[in-house]
Computed example of a mutant assay.
Amino acid sequence: MTLPATMRVFERGWLSSNNILFIGRDDTALVDSGYATHAPQTVALVRHALQGRPLDRLINTHMHSDHCGGNAALQREYRCRTTIPASEADAVRTWNQDVLTFELTGQQCERFTYTDTLAPGDAITLGDMEWQVLGAPGHDPHSLVFYCPAERILISADALWENGFGVIFPELEGASGFAETRATLELIASLNVDIVIPGHGAPFTDFDAALKRAFSRLDYFVADPARNAQNAVKVLLKFLLLERQSIPLADVPRLMADMHLSAEANRRYLHQPAEDLAEWAVSQLVRACAAKVVDDRLVNVG
């Protein structure tokens, strides 16, 4: 797999999204900035790769904290033009953390500003290449993906991973998300793609196989929406554990109950006492070797 010389992908850990750096003849740009706790590392990676050049533009595929948590740090470092999805502009301008889902997911993001916006149907030049801006609702109603027809490259954010896609969050609150996810996958399937750069995980080339797995996973959730809720609860706990690295087991029920989306997933679909749900989520992470229990604490693994 060979990317164009003007592109670099920084594959990050699960807590942070991947960062895609473009170094063109006349300007530079970064797509997505990772999580807040990794912001100094993000700045260092960008600074090293740019070798003295400025970062001219920062672009976000969507406003989840693991994709925009480094925005403020990069703005301080470079005073870069910052571009966000148009439908998120009001929430960012007023810093409505409920709409932006930071508080709903128990996550953090330092406040940042934006310069301009992108919407589905727009076109953008990155790394001397022309990219189409496509809407990709499902995981997030406002998410965008970027497609370069000339190079047959898709920057898919959390709409398509090598093994699935991001949690379908709207369904947790009783909104529609499954239909939007299917429409997004069908749109992506209509593209001529050689390389996919996902929001998490390594870039990959087996596009058809990834789509087949994604459609199968969606069918699995649609058949029983509680499965999407269970997946969300595990992911939210894992994200919290990645940030804190260690959590007293006695605190897990309260922390999960305090996360709005986790509580909503339980209220609508799982109907478990807080202690039982916490015990189940902990056991699932341990079973998956994503965590371990040490001296009455849940400890991150990986």
Rank of each mutant, 00 (worst) to 15 (best):
R213G: 00
F178C: 10
E186I: 11
A229D: 06
G201Y: 15
A189T: 02
L187S: 03
D194G: 15
A257S: 13
T181R: 03
D206T: 05
V233C: 13
D194W: 00
E173A: 01
D224W: 01
L237P: 07
L240Q: 12
G174S: 11
A179Q: 11
A209Q: 05
T184S: 09
F204P: 00
S176N: 09
S246K: 14
L191W: 02
D224Q: 05
V222S: 13
G199L: 14
A189C: 02
A257Y: 04
K238G: 14
A232L: 06
R227M: 02
L191C: 04
D208C: 03
P198Q: 07
V196Y: 03
L191R: 03
Q245T: 10
A223E: 15
T205N: 09
R227A: 00
L261N: 05
S190Q: 07
P170L: 08
P253V: 14
E243N: 05
D208G: 05
R182M: 06
A209D: 01
L218A: 06
V222Y: 10
A232I: 06
N231V: 10
F221Y: 15
A183V: 14
T184Q: 04
L255A: 09
H200F: 13
L261P: 01
P170R: 07
A175W: 15
F221A: 07
T205F: 11
P225M: 12
P225V: 07
G177K: 07
P170V: 06
S246N: 12
A223R: 10
D219I: 08
